[in-house]
Design a protein around this nucleic acid. Structure first.
Lengths: 173, 173, 173, 173
DNA sequence: TATGAATGAGTATTCATTCAT
DNA sequence: GATGAATGAATACTCATTCAT
């Protein structure tokens, strides 16, 4: 992948995440990336094609982010690690996460099955730990963490460390 | 308010909620509402003005939706009622809710304080019921319910009644 | 039809006829017609829609041009009049005719049946005049006249009056 | 001439003939010819240069096609052969002919003198055969044959063999 | 000779908005 | 209050052409 192609992807991710996909003009992406507008279409054919390239990249990354949890063998650690994820979001990855959550509102790109592996692992962990309704517990936890993540990304309110500890205690961690 | 003005608002709400604010052309609103395009601007000055009129309406409605909870005096009932809200969304109000949640991603329109009264009431209820960390409990519950609401609105997955009962049991209801 | 709409059609006909449909930019049409480019699309939806509006107009006109021949009752007059048509093209109608002939090369718009009524009338006339193979004679005459028309429209060579008389004599007129 | 250069010419001829010069993108030519887009410009400098190379080739070929007629010494044979030409078009040469006729509408490339030798030969033949107005007869015949050729190339209507015989009889052949 | 990344001017089309009626 | 013609700036996308390799 050439430098310019990569620059386009980076800039587009930033703009799509913060200003929205349809609100972001390809001309703006080009300007910010320091390339000609035409180049975007040479590399991605479509504005949509550019979005999809970004999504593909992101799906890969999503796998990497959750890999340590998926391969964890201690159920307590699975849950602790999961809970701590939204509290440890790196600022450099905000754009990535914002796009993930924004796209959920775009019918076409809302794929709930993406998180299936994590959900399954959590179910397993809760089972191991003797929870009666492991599936519901797993579901519940993902709901909680999704909300926390979104609040954090929006940046108007910070989810306090106190809340993190509150959560960990809830799960006896 | 004239019939036509109201029709514009209804149609715009529907389109903004489902296809997004910036993606929805005023011409489409006009067509679907059966009015001339010019009329939109006579009544609302701006496309943005139209959105803001809708938001104003919506804020009013939001108050009404949560009033029964806010004025409930039995703490158990406060929590039960809150939990059941996302499970009782009327299809006719999906557009209203969708817009609420979508706009949270629009910096300009994301006002976390909107839900303050509900949050306060929940804090009060948890305190009454002797929970140690009432504020965190209130926060947690709103997180959970936000996620459920969003999943429901997106419509790809249904949150089961089993989960509702699971939740109520969690809170000893 | 508003003035501006008509102006668009006139200018577009001129440009499509002389510079070709796909070679003519809508911006050029707008500039020459003294209207905004957007107006073209308000009125015709498409560049193609504009072309089709022109063609529709033209088909109407084609009917008018040949009506006097179609309703002529003297077979000799039918043939004389037909022969003289390409020699009497009014300069103000060149664009109309040019477009007719150019579009024949565009698969989509080449409709040989357009001239059926004239062809039938000629067949009738030749039959009346006792020609053995009236259909072929009619065909032949339209071939000849098409070529003359095209040469005339291209304007590099003029078809002489001598040739007109030569033709009339061929048909004993 | 390299293989690739020749391939470019062949493909361009096909596309120019069928989809038009200005409608055909150089990228499409490159793709269909299996070469890089840059190569077209290395070999022909211009898109226009490519067209002109094709025209040059074509003019050569045109000479070859009519040579047997030009060098025929029997006047009857000259006319018979000329008449039969449009009925014997080889499908493999349609593109060549289509381009010839389409370009006549392009002022810049419409050169009526190209056919002068054939026209002169026909004039000679008609003179030999005692026709009174040999020049006009020659002109007339080229008109007829041009029309037949165009109809054939457009392919919607076939010119019947009956018509060929009709023509030959007209000229006592 | 040949490639393919890159450009910049241009193209059809959209869209929020204005305005005369 | 309501219409519909008209605008102008912006938008996604195309395309002939250049250039370093």
């Amino acid at each position: 992948m050439t430098d310019k192609k990569e620059k386009i992807i980076t800039v587009a991710l930033e703009l799509f995440a913060n200003e929205g996909y349809s609100t972001t003009a390809t001309s703006k992406i080009a300007r910010k990336a320091g390339v000609s507008e035409g180049l975007i279409f040479r590399h991605f054919e479509n504005k949509k094609g550019l979005l999809e390239a970004i999504i593909k990249d992101a799906d890969l990354k999503l796998g990497q982010v959750f890999a340590p949890i998926i391969f964890e063998s201690d159920p307590k650690e699975v849950i602790r690690h999961t809970i701590e994820t939204p509290f440890n979001l790196d600022k450099s990855e905000y754009n990535f996460w914002k796009l993930q959550y924004k796209l959920k509102w775009q019918e076409e790109y809302n794929n709930p099955h993406k998180m299936k592996p994590l959900y399954d692992k959590l179910t397993w962990a809760f089972t191991e730990l003797g929870y009666q309704q492991a599936e519901e517990e797993a579901q519940l936890l993902t709901y909680i963490l999704d909300s926390i993540t979104m609040v954090t990304l929006r940046g108007k309110i910070e989810v306090s460390d106190k809340f993190r500890i509150f959560l960990l205690e809830k799960y006896n961690l």
